[in-house]
Structures are given as C-alpha cells and as structure tokens.
Simulated assay, not measured.
Amino acid sequence: MSCIQYEKKGEIAYLTLNRPEKRNAINSDMSDLLLEYLEEYKTDPQARVLIITGNGEKAFCSGRDLKESKENPEAFRKKPLRGRLFNAIIETYKPVITALNGAAVGAGCEIALASDIRLARSGILLGMPEAKRGMGATFGATILPKLISPSYAARMLYTGKLISSEEALRVGLVDDVLADQDQLMAKAEEIALEICECAPLSVQRIKETIWKTMDVPLFQALQLDIGPNVYESEDRLEGAQAFLEKRKPVWKGR
C-alpha cells in the first residue's frame, strides 16, 4: 500500500500520510510522493481545497525518518524537506487545511505551520524538538514567531518541548480542537465546503496576499497587486448577479 493516499471527493482533495507503523515519519519516497500530489492538487482546476491528515491514532507525522538518515545519509542529504515540501504547500496558492489526528512533531508540525488552517484532535502533542537532535528547524524557526507570540515560539524552539493541542489552541497555534477523529474530519470538511462556496480566484488572490505580505510593511503591502485580477473576472460579475437574484453563484474560475 502506498505511503501516501490521495483522493478527491467533489471539489475537496484529501492527502493522507500512510505509514502508521512508523508514526507516519517522512522518508525519501514519501517526500517525493507528497510533492507529486501537491503539484497535482495545485494544477487541478476542479480541486478547490486540500485536507492533509494521517492514518493511525498515535501520530499525524513524527517528522523526518531519522532511521533513513542513519542508514541512507546520501538520500537524506539530497532531499531536504526545508526548501521543498513546506514551500510547496504554501505555493499551491489554494487553501490547505491540516487535520492533526495525532502527534505532530518536527517536520510534521512544520507541515501544519505551512498550512492555512490547523485543526487538532484533543490530547495530542505538537512541537519541534530539533534543538534536542542537533538540527535546525529552519522553516519552523522562520514561520512560528510570525504565527504566535515570538517569545512563546522561542521557548518552544529553544527547549524542544512538545505542547498539548489544548495549549496550542490557547496560544493560537491551532484553530480548533475536536474530541475525536470523526469530529476532526467533519470540522475540516465543514470548513472546506464553506471555502468552496466562494469564488476560486478570490480565494487564490487572498491566499497569495496573506503569504506574500507577511513581512511587508503595511503601507507598502497596500500598494501591491498580488494574484489574479478578480476585479475584471467573469466570476465578479456572476457574484454580483447572484447576490441580486438571491441565488447561489455558479463559479467558473475565470
């Protein structure tokens, strides 16, 4: 069975990490498949929202497969996650929801950080213990202080301490905590369906604007024109017409 499962139901795509016996740790084959499916999602005009989750109850993803790094260090060096996987999640420029079914550690936590919306099951642990492993957490150290309190982010990164999903909700690292896996996926799908009701070009433009202005000063950011020009799109006319006619719009993505 493949270490990654990818499927579509209507306009929602699902990407499931599928090495539960290894706590869904990412090896080179898994990394390659993740990138392939992210590209498939990015280029599929019918796929509007991606939900990333994991198989098994113990872990969403325990990080990079350190056993592979010991047994096959060349593969580990040639395929670093830092500049590939997390950027690919962001640069889909379509919404990505991560549903954390279990522990999200190291690269698993960074997958969540690269996503737009983060949901978690109650009682799981999250964090980046790279400082305890002699590693750098480069992506996490870059993005985490932008998403939560910089001092709390520093504390997490410097100590490598894992926090509960409930604590992650309190500090704004996740957006909601659900009691079990069924509720977790139901909430992810509920949000995905709400997104699918909106114009795809508008959502794309908004996602690009969020990420590309994250470090840009306010008045400079306001001068930028990022993403597709929705103001001259067919969907803008359709949105206005549907509102006047009190019906649901039929989006064309153009």
Score class of each variant (00 low, 15 high):
G127N: 07
E197W: 04
A179R: 15
D175N: 13
G160A: 01
L173H: 04
E130Y: 15
I148K: 02
I210N: 03
W211S: 04
F139Y: 15
K146L: 00
K207N: 01
A153Y: 03
A153V: 03
T209P: 06
L173A: 08
V177S: 00
G140C: 08
R205K: 15
L193M: 09
T213R: 02
L201A: 09
D176F: 10
G172C: 00
K161S: 08
I195P: 03
E190P: 11
I210F: 01
K146R: 14
L173V: 00
A153R: 05
E197P: 05
I148L: 09
A131L: 06
S202V: 09
A199P: 11
E189Y: 08
I191R: 07
L125T: 07
G172M: 07
L162C: 03
T209S: 07
L184W: 10
E166F: 13
E166Q: 12
L147R: 13
E166R: 11
R133E: 04
I210T: 04
L193R: 11
E194L: 14
L125I: 04
G136F: 11
D180F: 08
G172S: 06
A137N: 14
P129H: 12
G127H: 06
A154V: 00
Y152Q: 12
S165W: 11
A179C: 08
V171P: 09
S202L: 13
E197G: 06
A168M: 10
V171L: 15
A154I: 00
P200W: 02
P129M: 11
Q204W: 00
L173S: 04
A179D: 07
L126G: 04
A168G: 07
Q183N: 15
L184N: 12
A179W: 15
A137D: 14
A141E: 10
A192P: 13
G127I: 00
D182N: 11
S151A: 14
M135H: 12
T142S: 15
K212V: 01
R170M: 14
D175H: 11
G134D: 13
A153S: 11
A137F: 11
C196T: 15
E208R: 07
I206R: 02
R133Q: 07
R133I: 05
G140H: 10
K161G: 06
I148V: 07
E197V: 09
A188V: 07
G160M: 02
M135K: 00
E167R: 12
I210Y: 04
M214T: 05
I195A: 02
P150T: 09
R155V: 09
T138Q: 01
L144G: 02
M156Q: 09
I210V: 08
L184P: 14
A199G: 12
M135E: 15
I195G: 03
A153L: 00
F139D: 11
A199K: 09
T213M: 03
P145D: 06
C198Y: 00
K146A: 01
P150W: 08
P129L: 12
T159F: 01
Y158G: 01
D215L: 14
Q204C: 04
C198M: 11
Y158E: 12
L173Q: 05
I148W: 00
